[in-house]
């Protein structure tokens, strides 16, 4: 069963099959889900999202992205980060320090144990 979604035809190059969106890797589905949920909760409108995404795609193409479809969700993630930074109190510094913290957590987690980020490392 596929959940109800905003109009996907506003997102021209979205990878889909006959049922709807498809993903190459799990993180793509996570990035997709976050955008849909943030739109549902009203953080941004759907036209705002479509515009943020097409801006990222245009910028990537200008920078020489061959645009074979395999980078679509990288642009999606960039657009999501940009929009979240613009619409919330989150800052670039906070996002970057959180990435460093997760990277460290991932490096020290033994295999077979979940990667956890303790409270006191959450800046």
């Amino acid at each position: 069963m596929i959940a109800a979604l905003p109009p996907l035809e506003d997102l021209p190059r979205l990878p889909i099959d006959r049922d709807g969106p498809v993903f190459r890797e799990p993180w793509e589905a996570q990035a997709f889900a976050m955008a849909i949920k943030l739109h549902e909760s009203g953080l941004f409108t759907w036209p705002e999202w479509a515009e943020a995404l097409s801006t990222e795609i245009a910028a990537a193409q200008k920078a020489g992205d061959p645009d074979l479809g395999d980078t679509y969700y990288q642009h999606w993630l960039k657009a999501l980060e940009t929009l979240v930074l613009a619409k919330t109190t989150l800052t670039v510094d906070r996002l970057e320090s959180r990435r460093r913290a997760w990277r460290k957590a991932a490096e020290r987690a033994p295999h077979g144990e979940p990667i956890l980020l303790p409270e006191d490392e959450r800046d």
Partner: peptide, 19 residues
Amino acid sequence: RLSELQLRVKSLESLLVEK
């Protein structure tokens, strides 16, 4: 254990959840 893209997704998600 995590690619750069996975790290970015995880970081964004954890901050959004905390907020």
